[in-house]
Design a protein around this nucleic acid. Structure first.
Length: 477
RNA sequence: GCACGUGUGGCUGAACGGAUUAGGCAAGAGACUGCAAAUCUCUGAAAAACAGGUUCAAUUCCUGUCGCGUGCUCCA
């Protein structure tokens, strides 16, 4: 299995620290606003990776944090005249709800920054003791000049250049404001009027953004982890700083063996972001599209690439999704017979082949577009066989097919049982499959059938249209 | 400016050092059908930013140029 490692700028064979276990940390959101499609892309990316690793037999411990204390949270809470905690609580709940709808598997742990302030203080203390950090006017900063090769992290430049870049700063050790170097970043931020604070040896205050993630990862998963993930926009300076401070603290060579970064969701070929204001909230998109369609849309381009959010593009995904679900329903509803033609073997073989293709695609840096293409090729084959040539299928085939769909769902999280089990087709529209509704619909269906038999098309079409208007699609045949 | 990534058909999006360059959407034609929908079949004599280089052979590797995106400031 090969994955692209942002640390080395190339594809690498994936090897874990412990056999069969993957320690994985993903940077979660700063909870001051509702999640947009960009957050969904990141979440779905790492959910996919996690699912695939589990499919490969790894026990994955995925930790994803919430940054629940930060300038923006404080600002917005003040604007609304509420406590910062109730603000972050509100958005954490919303985030979790949406993740659940998008079929994101629950994480191993979801720590919040404010839960481990004590540990952060301990780590900062040690960083000062080791000479990597300094206190200045009540705040504490990490000194990038004291850290070897700071500039080479995620920068494909030679060590010499790094030394040149840092030397200048370390020679002139005078303060620029509170810092010695512009790039020094804050570990502990001194309290200001109207802000929440925690006591520390340096001042009343709160932790800096970068130290939070390092501490949560180390605290829960340990000094060195397998995979660290996040959006491409976190690469620098966030992940860069995380690496510097974490390895400075632990003394290890690496903080994470693999850094993975997902690409953006673009709007008009520009990054969707809160600061640009060009974002679409997941909750709004969910009003128009099925969550699985959103998932498929975001998986239809490679995780490292950007995906352009347009109505047309997401509609394409909707079409593809319905195509696949229709075939799943078709096989589900079709009666199997004892002695189906031997030709069914070729279909069984095709399933086997498709599964292999998917595994190969996914082993190659999680190539979902390729994997999806091979699913569609299989779907076409099945449709040809069952619909066009109207051939019978065996129970054995059905079993094989559904075990395949289950694999697909395990990997992509796209085909939960609910789409083809108890409530399928039109009944799916009614939560819980109300018996009365079910019976009523059956009556309507059989009435229409009789009308059509008697060639009373006008009336039967009218019924079809009326049902359509209230959101029930009927397809004859 | 530095770094990372990217540039494939009307759109989306893969593979691959060579001989037939996936898959999907949209379009057109046809089959089926009372009609619609769904499904299937066929078609588009299809395309690889530009310029060099390596090679028997490059869309694929290398170099340069240009375009685009992102990071270097909060952001998934």
């Amino acid at each position: 299995m090969r994955i692209y490692n942002s640390l080395s700028f190339r594809m690498e064979e994936f090897k874990t620290i412990k056999p069969n276990e993957v320690l994985m940390y993903v940077c979660g959101p700063t909870v001051y606003d509702a999640p947009h499609i960009g957050h969904a892309k990141s979440a779905i990316t790492f959910d996919l990776i996690r699912r695939y690793l589990e499919f490969k037999g790894y026990n994955v411990k995925l930790v994803k944090n919430y940054t629940d204390i930060d300038d923006k949270i404080i600002k917005r809470a003040n604007e609304r005249g509420i406590d910062y905690l109730s603000l972050s609580e509100q958005y954490i709940r919303e985030y979790e709800e949406i993740m659940n709808i998008l079929n994101i598997k629950p994480n191993y742990k979801n720590p919040r920054a404010t839960e481990i302030i004590d540990f952060m203080i301990k780590v900062i203390k040690i960083l000062i003791e080791k000479g990597y950090a300094y206190e200045s006017n009540g705040s504490v900063y990490f000194s990038v000049g004291k850290y070897d090769n700071y500039e080479t992290i995620f920068q494909n430049i030679e060590k010499q250049e790094n030394e040149e870049a840092c030397e200048i700063h370390s020679e002139e050790r005078h303060l620029l404001g509170d810092k010695y170097d512009e790039k020094d970043f804050v570990l502990w931020k001194k309290w200001k009027e109207g802000e929440p604070y925690w006591d520390s040896p340096w001042s009343k205050g709160r932790p800096g953004w970068h130290i939070e993630c390092s501490c949560m990862a180390i605290n829960i998963l340990g000094n060195v982890i397998d995979i660290h993930g996040g959006g491409l926009d976190l690469k620098s300076p966030h992940h860069k700083n995380e690496i510097a401070q974490s390895t400075a603290y632990t003394g290890e060579k690496r903080f994470a063996n693999y850094f993975l970064h997902n690409g953006f969701v673009n709007v008009d070929n520009e990054k969707m972001s809160k600061s640009l204001g060009n974002f679409f909230l997941v909750s709004d998109v969910l009003k128009i599209f099925d969550p699985m369609v959103i998932r498929l849309f975001l998986l239809s381009s490679h995780y490292r690439h950007s995906v352009n959010y347009t109505l047309d593009n997401i509609k394409q995904s909707e079409r593809i999704y319905s195509r696949i679900s229709k075939t799943i329903n078709l096989i589900n509803e079709k009666e199997s017979i004892e002695n189906a033609s031997e030709e069914i073997d070729s279909l069984k073989l095709a399933i086997h082949k498709t599964k292999e293709d998917i595994i190969n695609a996914m082993d190659d840096d999680f190539n979902t577009p390729k994997a999806i293409a091979s699913i569609l090729t299989l779907i076409k084959k099945i449709n040809q066989y069952v619909l066009e040539r109207n051939k019978e299928i065996s129970q054995e085939f059905k079993n094989k097919f559904f075990s395949f769909i289950e694999d697909l769902d395990n990997i992509f999280g796209l085909f939960p049982r609910s789409i083809y089990q108890p409530k399928s087709g039109i009944f799916g529209k009614f939560e819980g499959g109300d018996d009365l509704v079910r019976q009523l619909l059956n009556i309507i269906k059989s009435t229409r059938k009789q009308l059509r038999k008697k060639k009373l098309y006008e009336l039967s079409d009218q019924i079809r249209n009326k049902l359509n208007e209230i959101g029930i699609d009927i397809e004859d045949n």
